[in-house]
Amino acid sequence: MTAPIPGQASNPGPIAALSIRGLAKRFGGKIAVDGISLEVPAGSFFGIVGPNGAGKTTTLSMATGLLRPDFGTAVVHGVDVWQHPLEAKRLMGILPDGVRLFDRLTGEQLITYAGLLRGMDKAVVAARVGELLAAMDLAQDAGTLVVDYSAGMTKKIALASAMIHAPRVLVLDEPFEAVDPVSAANIRSILDRYVASGGTVIVSSHVMDLVQRMCDHVAVVARGRLLAAGTVDAVRAGASLEDRFVQLVGGHSHTEGLEWLRTF
C-alpha cells in the first residue's frame, strides 16, 4: 500500500485533539467498526471519508460518547471519553447524523436548550444564540418550530446547538448534507476561522471535492477499517482525492451492462 501508515504520517502535535485506539463495534453478526486507530492533531481540519456503510458514523459516535465501543479507547485533549464522559463532553461539540432533534421547540429555543443543558449562564446563552442564528442565516426563522424547518435549516440549527458552549473540538457528522451553497460557504468560513484560532474540526463526508478543498488532514475508512490517514496532500499523492479514494476503496468496477438503457 502506497498510502502513509495510519497514525504516523499525520504527525500529531504534543497532545492530540482526539486520539482513538483500536475502536471496534459489532452489531449482531455484523462488524461495523473493526479496530480503527486515529490521531487527530490539535488545530487541524480533519476529514473522514468513506463509502456508505463504511463505519464513519459508528466511529464518530463511539469517539464522542454516544455509543459504547466493544473495544478500544477514545481520548479528547487528554481526557478519556469513556472514563470521564462529563469532562470529555464539555470539550466537544457534537453534530450527530441521523438523530432527531427536539423539534417541537423553536430554533431559538433549541439552541438555548442546548446551552442551558450544559449549565451555561443565561445571559451568555442569550448573547450567543443571537449571534449563532445570524451566522447561520436563521434569524428570520428563529421563532418557527424546528419540525417545520427544511432539511438544510434543521442541519444548521443542530450545528449551532453543537457550537454554543465554545468547544475545543467540533465533531460534525455530514454537516453539509442538504445545506444550500451560500449557507455552506458561510459555515465553512466560520469553521476556517475556528480552526485558525486553534480549534479542531472533524467532519465526515462522502463529497471528496469538498474534503479536498476544506480539510488539511484526511482519513479514508471502508468496511470498518482505516485505509489511509494523514495530510490531504500526503494521502492523495498527486492524484485528486476522489481518484485516490476510488483506488483505495476499490470500487468503480461495474460500468458494463445496462446496454438497454441506450436503446430508447
Binding site: 431559538e108 449562564d121 421563532g143 418557527t144
Partner: peptide
C-alpha cells in the same frame, strides 16, 4: 409554515437557568 422571528423563549425564559430547569 409561517416564518417567525425569534425573541420569545417561552417557558425556557421563565425557568431557573439550570440544566434541570431547562429540561
Amino acid at each position: 409554515a409561517v416564518k417567525r422571528k425569534g425573541g420569545r423563549l417561552g417557558l425556557l425564559g421563565v425557568v431557573p437557568p439550570t440544566p434541570a430547569g431547562a429540561v
